[in-house]
Amino acid sequence: MSDIDFLDDLEELSSAEEFLEYFDIEFDPKVVMVNRLHIMQRYHDYLQSADGAGSLPQDESALKAAYCQMLEQAYRDFVESDALTEKVFKVFRMHEPQTTFVPLDQLLEL
């Protein structure tokens, strides 16, 4: 993998461990083994949020640093917590209380 275009490099990565190794992030294999899907989904969520807010830098080295920081944060989320607490996937939020807004004028309709 080259340092010329790291976005092309990312296309070649397939596992959570490969991503963490690419960015030189120290990790506990036990944490990754148990939480790999949650870590990668959280990483995706962080990237999507930053991209949607327009806060990703244009410079390649700054962009790579931002990607690294978000992956490290996603990993740390599951070092310090667990999947049930973090509720990354919808299945963990299905039994939470649901709220629905009904406008007052619709309450009186028959």
Rank of each mutant, 00 (worst) to 15 (best):
L110A: 08
Y75R: 06
A62C: 04
E18V: 14
E11T: 12
R76S: 07
E11F: 01
M33S: 13
V102E: 09
L107K: 09
F101M: 08
C68R: 07
D45L: 13
I25Q: 02
E60I: 04
L110Y: 07
E12W: 00
V79D: 02
H44W: 09
R93K: 15
F27P: 05
F101I: 15
E17I: 10
Q98G: 03
E17P: 02
A65F: 05
F23M: 06
R93V: 02
K30H: 05
D45C: 03
D9G: 04
L37I: 03
P103I: 01
F27A: 07
R42Q: 09
L37E: 13
S2P: 06
A83T: 13
E21D: 14
S14I: 03
P103V: 05
V34F: 05
H38Y: 11
V31Q: 01
E60P: 15
E96V: 09
L84C: 00
V91I: 12
D82P: 10
L20S: 02
M94S: 14
I39L: 09
L10D: 09
V91P: 00
I4G: 02
L104Y: 07
F78Q: 03
A65H: 09
D59Q: 11
Y43G: 06
L47T: 01
A62G: 01
S61H: 12
D24T: 13
L56P: 02
D9V: 04
D5V: 08
K30C: 00
V32T: 04
D9W: 00
V79H: 01
D51W: 02
P97F: 02
Y22P: 07
D5H: 12
H95A: 07
S55N: 13
M70D: 14
S49N: 12
G52S: 12
M94D: 11
L110V: 08
I39R: 03
V34M: 03
D3G: 06
L108T: 13
Y22V: 00
N35I: 11
F27L: 10
D105G: 00
E86W: 08
A53D: 07
E21A: 05
H44V: 12
Y43L: 02
E26T: 08
D82F: 01
R36L: 01
L84W: 11
D82C: 14
L13Q: 06
D24P: 01
T100V: 13
L47F: 04
C68H: 06
V102R: 09
L63N: 00
S2I: 04
M33E: 10
S55D: 11
F89D: 06
Q58A: 14
D51T: 11
Q73N: 10
E60D: 13
Y67P: 05
Y75A: 10
E60V: 05
L107G: 08
L107Q: 12
T99M: 09
L110H: 11
E21Q: 12
A62W: 02
F78D: 04
D5A: 05
H38A: 15
K90D: 14
Q58R: 03
F101P: 00
E11H: 05
A62T: 06
Q98A: 11
A16Q: 08
V31C: 03
P97N: 05
G52M: 10
L10H: 06
R36W: 10
A74W: 04
L56V: 01
L71F: 06
S49M: 04
E17Y: 05
E86M: 15
S15P: 08
A16P: 05
L20W: 12
D45Q: 14
E26F: 01
